[in-house]
Structures are given as structure tokens and as C-alpha cells.
């Protein structure tokens, strides 16, 4: 029974990791490519880590929970790096399939433009 659950978690995790990278290759502009790795890969690795925690906990050497740490860390950092990558792409004015909304085209430039949002990112960690 445990074996089946573990196998399911491992297969699902590996499949999501694969789909995340597949999205990286198949999608057509940077902003849509961003979605694959940040979501699918994070959930895939999370699922693998849960499988690992279950596996080591059921081997009779006590509960093993330190995988939770990596999972938490990934789930906190993945959105931050996605946000930063997306901001960098907007800054470089990469081609996008979706039109930018009104008022965003004429972005204010200069070194202090993004201070506000960077402060809020620092708080998130």
C-alpha cells in the first residue's frame, strides 16, 4: 500500500518536473514560458520531496521531516524569482504575445524606479 502511494507520488512528481521543462521548450514567448517552470516544476519537486519524507519515515529510523524545509524554501522562493524574471523581461521590453495594458508602455526608467517593489520582495523572505 505504502509502496503504491510512494510510486504514485514519485511518478507524479517526475511527470510535473518534465512538463515544466516541456513548457519551457514548447511555449512561444518568454512570459508564457515563465509559467511552466515556476508552477509545474515546483509542484513536481514538492511531490518528490513529500515522497522522500514518507520513504525515510517508514524505514523505522524515526520520522524524517527535513525534506519539508526544502519544499517550504522552494515554495517561498519560486514566486520571487518568477516575479524578478518577469520584471527583468519587462525592463528589457521583450516581445510578448499579449498586448501590454494602457499606461504600462511608457514605463518610467531610471535607477530608482523599482525601489518600492524590491523592498516588498525583501520582506517576503
Amino acid at each position: 500500500m505504502m509502496d503504491l502511494l510512494l510510486s504514485f507520488l514519485i511518478l507524479a512528481g517526475a511527470l510535473f518536473t518534465f512538463i515544466g521543462s516541456l513548457g519551457l521548450v514548447r511555449l512561444r514567448d518568454f512570459y508564457t514560458r515563465l509559467h511552466g517552470p515556476t508552477k509545474a516544476s515546483t509542484l513536481g519537486v514538492g511531490s518528490l520531496l513529500v515522497a522522500s519524507a514518507l520513504y525515510f519515515s517508514t524505514r523505522g529510523e524515526g520520522v524524517s521531516l527535513h525534506e519539508v524545509l526544502v519544499t517550504l524554501f522552494l515554495f517561498i522562493t519560486a514566486p520571487v524569482s518568477a516575479h524578478l524574471l518577469s520584471k527583468a523581461a519587462l525592463h528589457l521590453k521583450l516581445h510578448s504575445l499579449a498586448p501590454l495594458p494602457q499606461g504600462e508602455r511608457s514605463e518610467p526608467s531610471g535607477p530608482n524606479r523599482s525601489t518600492v517593489s524590491q523592498n516588498s520582495e525583501r520582506d517576503a523572505q
Binding site: 515544466g20 515563465l34 513536481g44 522552494l74 524574471l85
Partner: peptide, 16 residues
């Protein structure tokens, strides 16, 4: 940014 995203994905894959 595409290359940075690919590197980031490689890190996550390495963890897996």
C-alpha cells in the same frame, strides 16, 4: 531572461 529561466529550471531539476 530566457537563459536565466532555463538555468533556474536546471537547478530545480537537479534538486529533483
Amino acid at each position: 531572461p530566457d537563459r536565466i529561466l532555463a538555468l533556474d529550471t536546471l537547478y530545480v531539476n537537479a534538486i529533483a
